[in-house]
Simulated assay, not measured.
Amino acid sequence: MKLKPIEKVSGLSSKEFQEQYLKTKTPVVLKDLAASWPATDKWTWEFLSSEYGHLEVPLYGKDYHKAGKGYMTPTTTMKLGEYLDLIRHKPTDLRMFLYNIFEHAPALSNDFSMPTIMDGFLKNHQYMFFGGAGAKVALHYDIDYSCVFHTHFQTQKECILFDEDQRIHLYNHPFTVQSHVDVLNPDYDRFPALRHAEGYHTILEHGETLFMPMGCWHFMHYVVGGYSLSLRANASLMTKAKGLMNISRHFIVDKGMNKIMGEKWKTLKEDIAHKRADKVLT
């Protein structure tokens, strides 16, 4: 597996961004996209805890993809203030995602603005992500096939990305946008095709924004407990249609077969992923 550093830039015009990164589907870290946002200075641990600590939030553990009744469902719930105190001071694999905090705390939406670096931003799809030190986000690409602008706050987050065409080396589970390889500790005996994968690596610092093109595979590792904001944009009607197809396939096929087959469905997906990768190796 080969990883090269993601370029970090400032002062990009909209035209430069679209020519150099959007059209070429190349990841980049924008150092100043969020520089004028109130959130960059305002969203401290103390602020979020004091203002929104009462919210009851869903949390997900490392068993998120475990087959059966608990497949892709929350592990537990907790008051946001208690959770923030936990991830600020202790390692934990509990993460908060797939929860639109802005529906419950709409005033937070006033602390950032939609970028003008490209068109197509989705105003109703703003999400925050929280995790404790050591927590990992399994390798995947976003199901809606949108472009993602991921801004991190307060701490550091390690990000490993792969272009869409690398999926055959990543053991993509069929009917999903997931892979279960651990790119931090690659097991080349079990996943030999992973040796040939080529990707990108960066450590995202406070206030920096990672641009992930549509279909870009990403693996996130919370070096220190922290939180991020993702804003999404559709590049075209074609990408929107592909996202709808992914969502339908996930909810109809993957979740449906999980209910019927449970662990056998997971094993079948793994077998298919290995057979596809083996064809490339031979």
Rank of each mutant, 00 (worst) to 15 (best):
H152I: 10
F153L: 13
F153Y: 14
T155D: 15
Q156S: 15
K157Y: 07
C159I: 06
C159Y: 04
I160S: 02
F162Y: 08
D163E: 12
E164R: 11
E164G: 05
D165K: 10
Q166H: 08
R167Q: 15
I168N: 04
H169P: 02
L170S: 08
L170F: 11
Y171T: 07
Y171W: 12
Y171H: 11
N172K: 13
N172D: 12
N172P: 06
H173R: 14
P174G: 09
P174F: 07
F175M: 12
F175T: 08
T176H: 06
V177T: 12
Q178C: 08
Q178R: 05
S179V: 01
S179C: 00
H180P: 10
H180T: 09
V181C: 09
D182H: 08
V183F: 05
L184M: 11
N185C: 05
N185I: 04
D187T: 02
D187G: 03
D189F: 03
R190A: 13
F191L: 03
F191N: 09
P192V: 04
A193S: 11
L194G: 15
R195D: 00
R195G: 03
H196V: 07
A197T: 05
A197G: 01
E198C: 05
G199H: 01
G199Q: 02
Y200A: 01
Y200H: 10
H201C: 04
H201A: 04
T202D: 02
I203Q: 07
L204M: 12
H206D: 03
H206S: 07
G207E: 06
T209H: 00
T209Q: 05
P213L: 02
P213K: 07
G215A: 03
C216W: 07
H218Y: 03
H218G: 00
H221E: 02
Y222A: 14
V223G: 12
V223E: 13
V224Q: 14
G225P: 15
G226H: 10
G226E: 08
Y227F: 12
Y227D: 03
Y227W: 14
Y227G: 03
S228A: 14
S228H: 13
S230F: 13
L231F: 11
L231R: 09
L231S: 14
L231V: 15
L231W: 12
R232C: 06
R232W: 13
A233L: 06
A233C: 08
N234E: 13
A235I: 13
A235W: 10
S236N: 06
L237R: 15
T239S: 09
A241C: 07
L244D: 13
I247E: 11
I247W: 13
S248F: 03
S248I: 09
S248K: 06
H250T: 12
H250C: 15
H250W: 15
F251W: 11
F251R: 08
V253E: 10
K255V: 00
K255T: 01
K255C: 00
G256D: 03
G256C: 00
M257V: 01
N258E: 00
N258G: 00
K259D: 02
K259I: 04
I260A: 02
M261I: 01
M261N: 05
M261Q: 05
M261W: 02
G262F: 02
G262Y: 01
E263C: 01
K264G: 06
W265T: 06
T267W: 03
A273W: 01
